[in-house]
Design a protein around this nucleic acid. Sequence first.
RNA 1: GGGGGCGUAGCUCAAUUGGUCAGAGUGCCGGACUGUCGAUCCGGAGGUUGCGGGUUCGAGUCCCGUCGCCCUCGCCA
Length: 610
Amino acid sequence: MSRSMGFNSSKRRHEPRESRSTLIMGQWKRTHTCGELRASDAGKTVTLCGWVHAYRDHGGLVFIDLRDRYGITQIVFDPAAGREMHALARELRSEWVVSVTGLVSKRPEGTRNPKLATGEIEVRAKHLEVLNRADTPPFEIASDEPVNEEVRLRFRYLDLRRPLMQQVLLLRHRLNKIVHRYFDELGFIEVETPMLGRSTPEGARDYLVPSRLHHGCWYALPQSPQLYKQILMVAGLDRYYQIARCLRDEDLRADRQPEFTQLDLEMSFVDMNDVIEVVEGFLARVFGELLGYQINLPLPRLSYPEVMRKYGCDKPDLRFGMEIQDVTDLVLQTEFRVFRQALEQGDIVRGLCAPQAAERYSRKRLEELEEFAKRYGAKGLAWLRVETEKLSSPIEKFFPGSVQQALRERFRASPGDVLFFVADSEEIVCDTLAALRNHLAAELGLIQPGQFALAWVIDFPLLVWDKEENRWVANHHPFTSPKEEDLPRLESEPGSVRAKAYDLIVNGYELGGGSIRIHRPDVQQRVFSMIGLNEEQAQKRFGFLLDALRFGAPPHGGIALGLDRLVMLLAGLHSIRDCIAFPKTQRAQDLMTGAPAPVDIKQLKELGLA
RNA sequence: GGGGGCGUAGCUCAAUUGGUCAGAGUGCCGGACUGUCGAUCCGGAGGUUGCGGGUUCGAGUCCCGUCGCCCUCGCCA
């Protein structure tokens, strides 16, 4: 049996060592993968292993597309090459696992398949070994036809067998490799932090683990390695990174799983610019190496007040414009009572201009948009079609010509556009228009696939008022440093204090967030105090951090990036479930394993829970 | 917890207003075929329309409940 260069010399190292028993079992071990044979290999005798991707039985000749992770190779079974083998080949079915030994041959003229990397050749089988039969799969592995996610998750091993899913996992692997290479080059060291930690107040709901040795006491699974990485800075590690699994017991979304992965990092003796620079370098390399996509550095930095005014949310999709404009001043010059009354209550009126939307949105469709707006708390959605001479709408008559002209100019509107307005509290106006903006952009096709808009959002408020709890809460987390110049106002005007925090946004997703941390115990104490943690409570919950800060904490800061979301964006997917090998459903169940599940009463007794 | 969408054959979907509507494609099974690669051709099997009630002469279709999946608001420092 001839041996090839490629697979044996380089890739073979990564394969498990062959054991004595497998050698005895038969001559089935592969010499090549299904993705590597080329015309230059013609004449070699090879053995391939894989799954039957497709079979085409011509009665005489039988063709098999044999698939493994590396590709697909066509196998030809000729009755002349052995009647027994040919008969066995006719029994093959989808997803059977086989080993084929045969001669690599250039395909006859006119039968080459340009769709396959191996399409120049085929393997003329001399020996066929069925390694395992397979039940008929519940869905077709070989097809690109979309399949109900429920079925995919239940049979995840089949779903992951599909080439598309394997590409995503490979992409994720390559991203992880870049992470390790890049941060190692910059002097970061990887430190693993505990999964079993202590529950801390604030933040997401914890997943709890009961202690067998301390009945009544519980570990919390980490929401993030936040505290540990700060401790590592106090310890003098200087630069830390980790690909860290994080767990939060909150409701799920397309971009939120109960366990997810963060690229977590922390640096000492740095300010915001240092962290941003490191991350930008990383992103440039990731997009460059994985997609051949060049991102322009430095990334834009937008202030929180600016994005809220222009886009209504703190993670706007910047792949399109459609900026929100305030028109409160113009509405004051109209007779439109709905708006005027709103203004009298202290509400505001803002709107946006949907380019060339008039044709797409009939009266009925516009009413649907109003329903959409109401879901975000808006009482209504006013609209005006932009025509060549005038604006057209049931409420047009309330708008004097001068106001119509001013609206046109403010939105730089062209005939065919539609103006939308919401009058309400600033919060509802922002929520509604932000959602509407994304909705319209998708429906109007304003987003080009393969395009990426990355930016930083900075100048977040340090604290926000929690109406339900009737207190200030940390906007980012309680260890985020206030800006020095705002520090004097911490107690007098808490809402005006800006944080040294930064979010990385990509295509409307929050890809990451970080901050410069508080490194002085007195400042930390003041922030705790502002969010309603007295010294005793703070000492009880975060005492170890406060203690650490007293023993010489360097100024430090860092960031965490959502790795699943990054993969999702790189792969052009719309759900992080598609880039996690074994994700959970919206109700946090694993349809394959059945987790979560009841446990034996014996286990509960050991834990003191029964 | 709230709002919305979906649930019909293994898979993807269709079935006017409640009335030959239990259908197609694909897969599956059997047969034919020596150059296919979305093979082709012939034949066949396969459904308690998620589940449980109700309305009706009659329900895939309407109503109520329930289960599951998805999107979303709240929530996620």
